[in-house]
Amino acid sequence: MKRIDAFTHFFPKGYYDLMGEVAGHMGDMVRRARAIPAIHDLDERFRVMDKFPDYAQVLSLPAPPLEIISGGNPDTALELAKRCNDGLAELCAKYPERFPAFVAQTPLATPDAGVAETQRAIRDLGAIGTQIYSNVAGKPLDRPEFEAFFAAMNELCKPIWLHPSRGANHPDYLDETKSLYEIWWTFGWPYETSVAMARLVFSQTLDKYPNLKIIAHHLGAMVPYFEGRVGPGWDQLGKRTSDEDYFSLLKSLKKRPLDYFKQDFYADTAVFGSRAATLCGLEFYGVDNVVFASDCPFDPEQGPGYIRETLQILEGLNLSQEDKEKIYFRNLEQLTGHRFSS
């Protein structure tokens, strides 16, 4: 059975070279990326992939976001996006059996040019969707300046890969200046994804653009575990707030808040080899809204660890052949309109 890894990360050479020129201010994130050979070295990437038969990867750009790497320069962010999209398209054309598709990168810091670059990558280069981050250099996704992007993706009917973004400069407590113990990553990234999803729900972006298809990284982050709060909890929106009219907002939504999260988002299986998280996410979203992904090459061994563990978990569940096919490639085909099966 074909297994298509829907959320993997790689630096194409042109992008990697430019990142090295402009991202000297990034410190730890860039050093970590460079220390993972399989994220920029094709030979090492192929060594990892060769351990798994009937396995291929959809490529997307790794963190950090363009807006951070570029130091806030929109022209640099746009050039980085172009190099990324051209480079990923070239890799897919050269190695179609290994990389049957790629996800574009949208530079949201340059709203109009970012929309145009996304359209170019999808229409001209063949990207099956695009990746954005949970915030744009600290700005929420529901700001009016980003609405043109969602309008364009609604028209294109291609999915959005939603990746979290948060750094150590985001403190855990108000009286501190930084996050300690990498809490910004362990708990901060799932929080970021969940908040971005909620803002798209309550800003009514999903009501306005019903063709949006969003894949929330790491099995929908915190949402499945907090089903009780997202469901019965948010059914009471407004009871805890006196300075905003959330009662009217709740009534204006086209459906229950919980139903947006369960029905309008998709999720991937990249949960770092956790069986409990996989069970929770599958129970919440159902097999029709989950795609297989490993987050390659981010695992402790810098090798096949999370790919192997994710596959072992899925194969160990009581799933029918039909449901396995849905998770491994058919759901992704339905989402993207791209055929992966022979």
Results as ranks from 00 to 15, higher is better:
166 R>S: 08
214 I>D: 09
286 G>V: 07
46 F>C: 09
342 S>V: 07
294 S>C: 10
111 P>E: 07
284 F>P: 10
319 L>R: 12
296 C>H: 15
44 E>W: 01
269 T>M: 09
312 Q>F: 02
339 R>T: 15
181 Y>K: 12
301 E>I: 04
45 R>T: 13
315 E>W: 05
119 Q>K: 15
227 E>K: 15
163 H>M: 10
202 F>G: 06
77 A>L: 08
10 F>R: 07
235 D>E: 13
122 I>T: 08
182 E>A: 13
251 K>P: 00
228 G>R: 14
41 D>T: 06
140 P>L: 09
116 A>I: 01
49 M>C: 03
165 S>T: 15
328 Y>A: 00
277 A>T: 14
329 F>A: 14
250 L>H: 13
297 P>A: 14
331 N>K: 10
229 R>V: 09
222 M>I: 07
257 P>T: 09
325 E>A: 14
180 L>F: 08
287 V>S: 14
341 S>T: 02
269 T>F: 06
96 P>Q: 05
271 V>E: 04
31 R>E: 15
154 N>G: 01
330 R>W: 03
216 A>E: 02
339 R>P: 02
226 F>C: 14
262 K>W: 04
98 R>M: 05
81 A>N: 10
301 E>P: 01
313 I>L: 06
303 G>A: 14
211 N>M: 11
95 Y>R: 09
200 L>E: 12
307 I>E: 11
47 R>W: 02
89 A>Y: 01
9 H>M: 02
136 V>Q: 12
213 K>T: 00
334 Q>D: 14
143 R>H: 13
230 V>K: 01
33 A>P: 00
294 S>N: 08
322 E>W: 02
67 E>R: 03
312 Q>S: 11
318 N>I: 02
309 E>H: 09
53 P>I: 06
342 S>I: 05
306 Y>I: 00
83 R>H: 00
219 L>S: 15
174 L>D: 07
291 V>G: 03
276 A>E: 15
206 L>S: 09
145 E>M: 14
110 T>Y: 01
106 T>V: 07
199 R>I: 09
51 K>D: 10
322 E>V: 13
238 G>N: 07
6 A>T: 14
263 Q>I: 09
302 Q>V: 03
202 F>N: 09
80 L>H: 00
320 S>Y: 07
130 T>Y: 00
29 M>C: 03
186 T>V: 13
117 E>P: 08
210 P>G: 01
308 R>D: 04
56 A>Q: 05
28 D>V: 10
150 F>I: 10
244 E>S: 06
88 L>V: 07
292 F>N: 08
198 A>Y: 08
76 T>W: 00
102 F>R: 03
47 R>Y: 05
54 D>K: 12
7 F>P: 00
234 W>K: 00
4 I>W: 10
149 F>L: 14
286 G>T: 08
222 M>Q: 13
231 G>F: 00
78 L>S: 13
16 Y>I: 02
205 T>H: 06
61 L>C: 02
135 N>E: 05
101 A>T: 04
311 L>C: 12
331 N>F: 07
110 T>P: 02
239 K>I: 11
107 P>I: 10
94 K>C: 05
216 A>P: 00
